[in-house]
Design a protein around this nucleic acid. Structure first.
Length: 350
DNA sequence: AAAGCGGGGGT
DNA sequence: ACCCCAGCTTT
């Protein structure tokens, strides 16, 4: 074991800090309102938590406000077409989240009468809700005394315990240590610890002087807390290359199509491309036309770097049947991931 | 247990 | 250039 006898976090100190330093977030019930008995809306907490998976608060805010404006309740979201949800999600990334979000809304409506389950165990059976999100919803909405452990908390706890191994190799120990620290105000505690990780114990800077749990922090005693968490070996990012084809018809409309149901950017909108390969494939234009090279687009995915050669041409609107022709001014409303917005921009559209 | 899956902002 | 973020699902 790496933590033979981990001291619990001083939850009272964390909560006292939170009472005066809680961030003001669109989906949050403030600690003062919570103390008055105001309870968070599980729909809004769920929506925010799904959006926040691997995504920063700053990026989420506008999407959250847009979604709750369009679909104020889980019934509204469940009744929306998946296409509309994907369009609104475009640009936020990890598009499986949007498909699971829609499926989850429908499950809540059709199988739970429109009410979210109230325990972490039952929440975890829903699409797109895993260990973290189920715990977060149960704690924040229903004060279930459960450990809410995310990447943010991994870092805080690795520092607090001066964890001598990468977090990956001690995940359950950290969870047990956090679980042993959860107080009655479980929801506020969960949110407080995340605020602590975001504002005090941040990835590169730890403002230990302001930290409510600095007295018990082994990382500050033993060494520089910023040394933690220890990093596992890094994997190199491979490169893939391909061609992208932007076609306009005599009316100036752009040819778009829908990506396959599974895999990368599933069901999102794209322009035709070649395969993406280690060696740049030979150019094979989709149809005849006066093709021009419009430069290169580089896009970084988590697991590879993509380099696309951009080609554009004015073509006759025949011989293409999979997709549709879209007016350039309507591109903003399409379910285009950032990659293909870059492609269209390189071709002089958008 | 490992791999696949986006995008953006901070440093 | 690199890091990392309120992770989940599939294999």
């Amino acid at each position: 074991m790496h933590l033979p006898n981990p001291a619990p976090i001083d939850a009272a100190a964390v909560l006292a800090w939170y009472d005066t330093h809680a961030r003001d977030l669109p989906w949050r019930v403030s600690p003062a309102d919570r103390a008055r008995g105001m309870a968070p809306d599980p729909y809004r907490i769920w929506l925010s938590e799904v959006m926040l998976q691997q995504t920063t608060v700053a990026a989420v805010k506008a999407y959250f406000l847009r979604f709750t404006s369009l679909w104020p309740t889980v019934f509204d979201l469940a009744a929306a077409p998946l296409d509309a949800v994907l369009k609104e999600w475009a640009g936020l990334g990890y598009y499986a989240r949007a498909r699971n979000l829609h499926a989850c809304a429908q499950a809540v409506v059709n199988q739970h009468g429109g009410k979210f389950p109230t325990t972490s165990t039952s929440l975890q059976t829903l699409p797109g809700i895993g260990a973290y999100t189920s715990a977060a919803i149960a704690a924040i909405c229903f004060d279930e005394p459960v450990a809410v452990l995310d990447g943010n908390l991994d870092r805080v706890l690795a520092r607090y315990y001066a964890l001598p191994v990468p977090v990956r190799d001690a995940k359950e120990e950290l969870r047990a240590a956090l679980q042993a620290s959860v107080p009655g105000r479980a929801g506020d505690f969960a949110q407080a610890m995340m605020d602590l990780g975001a504002t005090i114990c941040a990835p590169r800077t730890a403002i230990c002087m302001l930290c409510p749990i600095q007295p018990g922090c082994v990382g500050t005693k033993a060494a520089d807390p910023a040394l933690y968490p220890l990093k596992a070996a890094k994997a190199e990012r491979p490169v893939r290359k391909g061609h992208a084809f932007v076609m306009t018809d005599p009316a100036g409309d752009v040819y778009l199509q829908t990506r396959p149901d599974k895999g990368l950017l599933a069901k999102m909108t794209e322009v035709p491309t070649s395969d993406w390969a280690v060696d740049l494939p030979a150019v094979a234009y989709p149809v005849q036309g006066d093709w021009h090279h419009r430069g290169q687009v580089i896009h970084i995915f988590t697991h590879f770097r993509l380099e696309l050669e951009i080609w554009s041409a004015a073509v006759a609107p025949t011989g293409l049947d999979k997709g549709w022709w879209a007016e350039p001014k309507a591109l903003k409303g399409e379910a285009l991931p950032t990659l293909f917005r870059k492609v269209l921009a390189a071709a002089g559209l958008e």
